[in-house]
C-alpha cells in the first residue's frame, strides 16, 4: 500500500499538477488563439469595466435576478464552490505536505472547520445530483458526463472525509483520496469542469457586450 501511496502522491501527483496547470494554460491560450484567428472582433468589444461589473454581480450571492429567483440553489452553489476551492488549498494536512516537499506554507484552516466545509461540498454534490435527476429541465439536458464530472469532484471530498475520520480501511481510503485528487486536477482542463477556466471569459464577454454596446444589465 505504501508503494501505491508513494506513487499516487509522488509521480502521479506531478503528472496531475502538470496536466492541471499545463492543461489549463494550454486550453486558455488555444482558446485565445482561436479568438485571434476566427473571431478577432471579440477583443475589440472587451471592456475591463463592464467585464468586472458583470463578474462581480454574478459572484455575489443574490446580486442577480436569477440568483434571487433560486434562493436554495444560490446558497448551495456558493457554499459548494467556495468550500470546494478553499478546503483543499487551506487544509492543514495539505499545507504540511507542501511544506515538507517544497518548504512553502501558508495559513491553514482548523481541522474542525475544514471537516464541516468538506461535508458542505459532499452535501452540495448530493444536492446537485438530486436536482439533476428530479428537476425536469435539468434532467432533460443531463448526459452521462454530468454524473461523471460530479463524481470526479465529489470523490476527493468523500475519501478525504473518510480518511480524516479514519473510517473504513484507512490506508486504502487514503490512497484512493490522493488518487481521486489527482484525477480531479487532471480532469479540470479537459472536461466541462473547465467552466472553472472559461466562465470568467464568457461572463466578461457577455458583460462587455451588454455594457458597451447594449447599455443594459446582464444580471
Amino acid at each position: 500500500m505504501h508503494s501505491f501511496y508513494n506513487f499516487v502522491s509522488g509521480p502521479l501527483a506531478w503528472v496531475a499538477f502538470i496536466l492541471f496547470f499545463g492543461g489549463s494554460i494550454y486550453r486558455i491560450v488555444s482558446m485565445l488563439k482561436l479568438v485571434a484567428e476566427k473571431e478577432r472582433f471579440i477583443f475589440s468589444y472587451m471592456s475591463w469595466r463592464y467585464s468586472l461589473r458583470s463578474i462581480i454581480h454574478w459572484i455575489i450571492p443574490f446580486a442577480t435576478v436569477n440568483w434571487r429567483r433560486q434562493p436554495v440553489l444560490t446558497v448551495v452553489t456558493f457554499a459548494f464552490h467556495l468550500c470546494l476551492l478553499a478546503t483543499p488549498i487551506f487544509l492543514l494536512s495539505h499545507v504540511v505536505l507542501w511544506d515538507e516537499a517544497f518548504s512553502i506554507s501558508w495559513w491553514t484552516l482548523p481541522d474542525a472547520v475544514a471537516d464541516i466545509m468538506t461535508i458542505i461540498v459532499i452535501l452540495g454534490a448530493v444536492y446537485f445530483l438530486v436536482r439533476r435527476v428530479t428537476q425536469p429541465e435539468v434532467k432533460f439536458v443531463t448526459s452521462v458526463s454530468d454524473f461523471v464530472i460530479l463524481a470526479i469532484v465529489a470523490a476527493p471530498f468523500i475519501t478525504g472525509f473518510l480518511a480524516y475520520h479514519q473510517w473504513l480501511s484507512y490506508p486504502l481510503v487514503m490512497c484512493l483520496h490522493v488518487l481521486a485528487g489527482d484525477i480531479m486536477l487532471a480532469a479540470i482542463p479537459f472536461t466541462r469542469l473547465s467552466h472553472m477556466l472559461f466562465s470568467p471569459f464568457t461572463r466578461a464577454y457577455m458583460g462587455s457586450e451588454f455594457g458597451k454596446v447594449r447599455h443594459a444589465r446582464d444580471w
Partner: peptide
C-alpha cells in the same frame, strides 16, 4: 464559428438555470 461556439458548448454545465 470559433471560440464562442467552442467555449459555449464546453462551458455549459447543464444546470438548466
Amino acid at each position: 464559428t470559433g471560440a464562442r461556439l467552442k467555449a459555449y458548448v464546453e462551458t455549459c454545465i447543464h444546470c438548466g438555470l
